[in-house]
């Protein structure tokens, strides 16, 4: 007994605080240093320097931003950028939903085959895909030839070098992203949910509009947001499939640097694109990040 009580005393007997042990273990930050230094020097610094150029060239001030927003040519570019990004997002959602739905319910063989095709197209080199659309969309290309041959149209549709062509080519690129971002939410849908809806008396259309769509809305929104952001900054496909009058923001930036050597304005346009992108990603993280568990 005395023994036990003495032991209890051990805990009470720390009147004099013992000296703190010296720090000996390292905190494990060191391995991050090479990567961190690399990104700071070769990524952050150049981007910040570019943005700085927008304020200093040709002289200090906001003249580049004023020019960007006031000139109608540039305003037009901004309009085109948003129009294309919006159309691409909408059409991708419209096509991606049934495609992802098919993948979720179709017999295994078919769903695996179609999914393989989706992934193959997504992984194929961007230029190869764009090249194919350049061939397909020509005035004398396969699509127009086919439509004239069937007699649906007399004269070729203006597909190549127009906004229509840009949208088609970009939907081709973005569609797989929509399918991928709907896969998770669709897999989480339980068949019994719809059995319940049907027992409640809901028709197929009612079940679709009142149960199916609301449950998939977060996935659609998340996928749409990603596609919209990516489309805003797209360069290659619009520049190859579009015409001069359908220029988008990224093309404008490239042109300002490559042919006009106007680094100040290019910096300002980059800043604009960056702010748009980052704020949309902030929305994405705030509302759609799975870590937050907002979608439940």
């Amino acid at each position: 007994m005395a023994d036990a009580i003495a032991v209890k005393g051990v805990r009470a007997a720390q009147a004099a605080p013992p000296p703190p042990a010296p720090r000996r273990l390292r905190n494990g930050f060191a391995p991050a240093v090479p990567g961190l230094a690399f990104l700071l020097l070769c990524f952050m610094l150049p981007v910040l320097a570019l943005l700085l150029r927008s304020l200093t060239q040709p002289q200090w001030g906001l003249q580049n931003y004023a020019a960007l927003l006031a000139t109608s040519t540039y305003a037009n570019v901004l309009f085109n950028t948003f129009a294309v990004a919006g159309l691409v997002t909408g059409i991708s959602a419209l096509l991606g939903l049934p495609l992802a739905w098919f993948l979720a319910v179709a017999p295994r063989f078919w769903s695996q085959l179609v999914f393989g095709i989706v992934i193959l197209s997504m992984w194929t080199n961007l230029l190869a895909r764009t090249y194919a659309w350049m061939v397909l969309l020509q005035d004398t290309g396969i699509i127009n030839n086919f439509l004239i041959w069937t007699g649906i149209i007399q004269n070729p549709l203006p597909l190549f070098g127009t906004m229509a062509g840009v949208v088609i080519g970009m939907v081709y690129i973005m569609l797989p992203f929509m399918v991928l971002s709907l896969r998770g939410p669709l897999a989480a849908l339980d068949a019994s949910l719809f059995q319940a809806a049907s027992l409640c008396g809901a028709s197929r259309v009612q079940a679709f509009t009142q149960v199916f769509l609301p449950l998939l809305a977060p996935g659609l929104a998340a996928g749409g947001l990603i596609i919209f952001v990516m489309s805003l900054g797209y360069y290659i496909t619009p520049s190859l499939l579009g015409g001069a009058q359908d220029m988008m923001l990224a093309e404008l930036i490239a042109q300002l640097v490559q042919t006009l050597l106007n680094w100040g304005l290019a910096g300002a346009a980059s800043f604009l694109l960056l702010v748009l992108t980052l704020s949309l990603y902030a929305v994405q993280i705030r509302y759609f990040s799975p870590r937050r568990g907002k979608e439940g």
Binding site: P18, P19, A21, R23, L25
Partner: peptide, 9 residues
């Protein structure tokens, strides 16, 4: 030795 005590020996 995986945790370094704040105090003691």
């Amino acid at each position: 030795g995986f945790i370094e005590p704040s105090a003691g020996e």
